[in-house]
Design a protein around this nucleic acid. Structure first.
Lengths: 350, 350
DNA sequence: CTGAAAGCGCTTACAG
DNA sequence: CTGAAAGCGCTTACAG
């Protein structure tokens, strides 16, 4: 394995010059640069990550904290992040944040503190105060995606608006008895950014129903709590549809729960959308296959934005040099979403 | 950020002793070890990955090469790998191997050669000869999972047996006109390990049908090629079902293609399994939801095995020290699979 | 069991 | 534009 000394010797320059030629940092004549690069290429020399990182303080690696690896949604986000990082030469190392307290403690107390990464992207996890503090003490750029914490620069879609949009679609079709499967807004509404995603979608639902009532429409909002899995959605739908006065439409806070609702409907012999309208949220891979009406939130594009945001923060930090990290480098703008109407929603039967 | 010197000073020992106490390498009195660990804990000291890696040659990081990030299957595998690596303190960095030649070249020529990882796991990708050579020149342990290359130690399920099992299930139900969607075995059969997964499943299908014919059953095998996406499966099914003499059963080489077949059947007004039986392969997340009969190959467990295999190779390499890497540390045994019968397969109509 | 010291392979002020 | 040299923060023979 060739070292920088081999390249220096082959090109007849110092190792300092090799470093400059290969990294592109510092001025250098074109001829020298070309000669060094040719020597490096012919020797198959590649800079050692450890040595470069130790000397420069740059790891060229981004840590991504993900709550679940085996969900399509996060895979799509990761793909979007990688698409931004790879062309810039950054690697991506994954950290799974489970529910296990020991595992979480290890992640924040050691894994993330080894200086292996230049920045971290945190995906849709609910963090404790101690964890947020640990993240801040990292002295590394952090970008959240759907992380309900105002202390952290975080990209997010306006989930209250998402909840409203889904509900308003059903109201516009003429539904009045509408149920929401997700998370119900608890008594008092805390400071906005602190609400988690499910709760915000639930609030959007409640608001839209309240507005409809205020406008004179006799609505009947219902809530069921579920855990964002297919099975959870299925069970919640059964509870909802078993009653004497079942809803004519269900707004599930995720596409996967909506699939569960579809399953429950089939099990009960209900025809969708004739007997029941169903709408989800995410823009899941298979929503088209199911003909599921949904609010697409473009997860791949979300990943790209998060990747771009962390790189921008890094670039900014590099320029400013030494100054505190600029959280403002992360655009506070809401991420886009879009209602996609397919065949699981229609007007209720007369 | 505390350094090893701070800890040494606080504990009243040399940095060598701190290193030994924290890494657990080398003999050391219990009292000293405890004192050093206490000092490190109270200072919040964590070893720098770069410095440790440069000095020791160990990165405590495994590279995973994946062809697609946004498929459930790979997410499940990654989750299995991470479950093995994390408790051992190993990180996992992801490398997306796309179809883009420039991107692939960059991956093998530089990303993987930065010495950022101690070993690499390669997931279900078809590698060119040059790529296999590049992997071998890495002088790093490599474990393939479903990689059709005899040069690389690779874990795999016996996909020919998988193909046979799926086909035999349909034959046992009484089907005779059976189609396979996947990859057809080309003219001559090359050396076994070099056949890719789709081709091996196709061969299993062909073998089972041939055996049935030899046993006196009048079978009618058909093949359609598709790209392992839902849409590809749907299109292939349409071609198959449009003809004058459509098959009564379809064996799709992946669950996602089977979902496409189910969609096509619905579009054509065919009832499953009354008019058409469908079986897939994978044990996909949503197979249960669809009631899809499938051959489960336990992807999460596959990831765990691959993670354990790479760690075992690393441990072996550490013990043998200097000797060439022991490919035999990877168990050549076939990975398990299992037929899961649900509601998309039944006897054909009389 | 413990320490002094060399060395891992780069990067980057500092000079010129 | 280029080089000599210090230094990044550890680990590990080598001694004792």
């Amino acid at each position: 394995m060739a070292s920088i000394d081999d390249v220096a010797r082959a090109a007849g320059v110092s190792t300092a010059t090799v470093s400059r030629a290969l990294s592109g940092r510092g001025r250098l004549s074109d001829a020298t640069r070309a000669r060094v690069r040719a020597a490096a290429a012919s020797l198959g020399y590649v800079v050692s990550a450890a040595a470069s990182s130790l000397a420069s303080g740059r790891a060229e690696n981004i840590g991504v904290v993900v709550p679940l690896m085996d969900r399509w949604f996060f895979g799509a986000v990761l793909d979007g992040i990688a698409a931004q990082l790879a062309p810039r030469g950054y690697d991506m190392t994954l950290y799974n944040l489970t529910a296990d307290p020991a595992q979480r403690a290890r992640l924040f107390a050691s894994s993330l503190r080894r200086r292996r990464v230049d920045g971290v992207i945190v995906l849709s996890v609910e963090l404790t105060d101690a964890e947020v503090a640990a993240l801040q003490e990292l002295a590394l750029p952090v970008v959240g995606l759907g992380v309900p914490r105002s202390e952290l620069p975080s990209l997010r879609v306006d989930d209250t608006a998402v909840g409203r949009a889904a509900t308003e679609h059903l109201l516009a079709l003429g539904h009045r008895d509408i149920a929401h499967i997700g998370q119900r807004l608890a008594a008092e509404s805390p400071a906005d950014p602190e609400l988690d995603i499910p709760t915000r979608r639930g609030r959007g639902f409640a608001q839209a129903m309240r507005d409809a009532a205020a406008a004179g429409t006799a609505v009947d909002p219902r809530f069921e709590t579920a855990d964002f899995t297919i099975e959870g959605g299925r069970l919640a739908a059964h509870r909802l549809l078993a009653g004497p006065h079942p809803p004519t439409a269900i707004f599930a806070a995720s596409d996967e729960m909506a699939y569960g609702v579809l399953t429950a409907a089939r099990e009960l012999g209900l025809s969708v959308p004739r007997d029941l309208s169903v709408i989800g949220v995410d823009g899941h891979d298979m929503a088209e296959l199911f003909g599921l009406t949904t609010i697409d939130q473009f997860p791949h594009a979300q990943g790209e934005r998060a990747g771009a945001a962390i790189l921008a923060t890094l670039d900014g930090a590099a320029t400013v040099d030494g100054e505190s990290l600029d959280a403002a480098a992360v655009p506070p703008a809401s991420l886009p979403f879009e209602l996609v109407v397919r065949s699981t929603t229609a007007a209720p039967r007369a």
